[in-house]
């Protein structure tokens, strides 16, 4: 089972098949400790990917490198493949984000777009993946594979999210395929370094189902998000997020709220009224992961993108002192 011996073969090869060898990387970033500070020591990007490395975002006194991954035109056209590798050295901090949502344009001749990210985080390193959501346009096909290898005491915040489409244009859940794979492996300290154990193997695939369409399954919600928090540096952050999620859950499940939702669903099934026009709704839940519950997975669904931004902004404020700023500020 390749799941289990992931480290023995290249993770790329395992996930994508041997054909991966023929694919060229479109981006490489390496962050190392230089004179006691995190610094980008290697960067390479080619069409359609571009990196921006601003140095005025993080206030002095906070050690973090910010990377904007940008695609030309703000989106990915069919048959495009973006594959990047990020290495965050021991004790370094790196944040990777985007400037706005990533648009996935319609599929031409059945071809799809893909984004692949493979990241290594060294001992006591910290990697934050905080992109804007993926927005799949009508008839688009998109696959995303993100794989993380964490050394001992490494830390990770991963946000992976998507929206239903160009909702303002009346387009919602009309893409053909959205598939997002997030795998997190822990380096096995006892065994040799080439072995790693799976911590989180998640794959979400949204396409026309056997019995229900994606829209039917989503019931008026337009945003789907996952946030994974892992590592010793983030223990306090996890507790705060967990508390907030529980608070939100209890609020969402109070009788009054539930009745509102029920009424809304009944109405919308009768009048086909767009649910986004009624009260905004956010549902969140969280679960611990890892052998010693040293990780947290937060799942969230919301009726509007703004609601999800607000939720993330509120949570990320807790790690301001680690990453220096919130990438979602102003959105």
């Amino acid at each position: 089972m390749a799941f289990m011996d992931s480290g023995r073969r290249s993770g790329w090869e395992k996930l994508l098949g041997p054909s991966f060898k023929d694919r060229a990387l479109t981006g490489v970033i390496k962050v190392d400790n230089v004179a006691g500070k995190s610094a980008v020591t290697r960067t390479f990007a080619k069409y359609p990917l571009k990196f921006l490395l601003p140095n005025k975002i993080v206030p002095s006194g906070i050690d973090a490198v910010w990377i904007y991954a940008i695609s030309y035109g703000g989106g990915i056209v069919s048959n495009d493949s973006i594959s990047q590798r990020v290495e965050v050295g021991p004790s370094c901090t790196a944040v990777i984000t985007t400037q706005s949502s990533t648009k996935i344009y319609k599929s031409v001749e059945g071809k799809f777009c893909e984004q692949i990210l493979q990241a290594y985080v060294g001992r006591e390193g910290f990697f934050a993946v905080l992109p804007d959501p993926i927005t799949c346009f009508k008839n688009s096909k998109y696959t995303q594979v993100q794989e993380f290898y964490l050394a001992a005491d490494a830390n990770l915040v991963l946000i992976d999210w998507m929206t239903s489409g160009r909702v303002d244009n009346g387009e919602s859940w009309e893409f053909e395929l959205y598939k997002s794979i997030n795998h997190i492996y822990l380096e096995d300290v006892k065994a040799d370094c080439s072995k790693s154990t799976p911590l989180f193997l998640d794959c979400l695939c949204l396409e026309q189902g056997v019995g229900t369409s994606v829209a039917e399954r989503m019931r008026g919600f337009h945003v789907v998000a996952n946030m994974v928090i892992y590592g010793p540096k983030l223990a306090a952050f996890r507790v705060k997020v967990q508390k907030k999620v529980q608070e939100l859950t209890q609020k969402a499940f109070t009788r009054r709220k539930s009745c509102d939702l029920t009424a809304r669903l009944r109405d919308s099934s009768l009048s086909a009224e767009s649910p986004s026009t009624s009260d905004p709704l956010l549902f969140v839940s969280c679960s611990s992961i890892g052998p010693a519950n040293e990780g947290l997975v937060v799942r969230a669904v919301a009726s509007t993108t703004a609601l999800m931004y607000d939720f993330f902004k509120e949570q990320l404020a807790h790690i301001d002192s680690l990453i220096g700023a919130c990438p979602y500020a102003g959105r």
Partner: peptide, 23 residues
């Protein structure tokens, strides 16, 4: 194959995660 195992229902998944917090 187990490599193809995936979720298809994020809304139900999120709601199910709240089960232990129901009053």
């Amino acid at each position: 194959s187990v490599h193809e195992a995936h979720q298809i229902a994020p809304l139900l998944d999120t709601l199910q995660g709240s089960q232990t917090l129901l009053f």
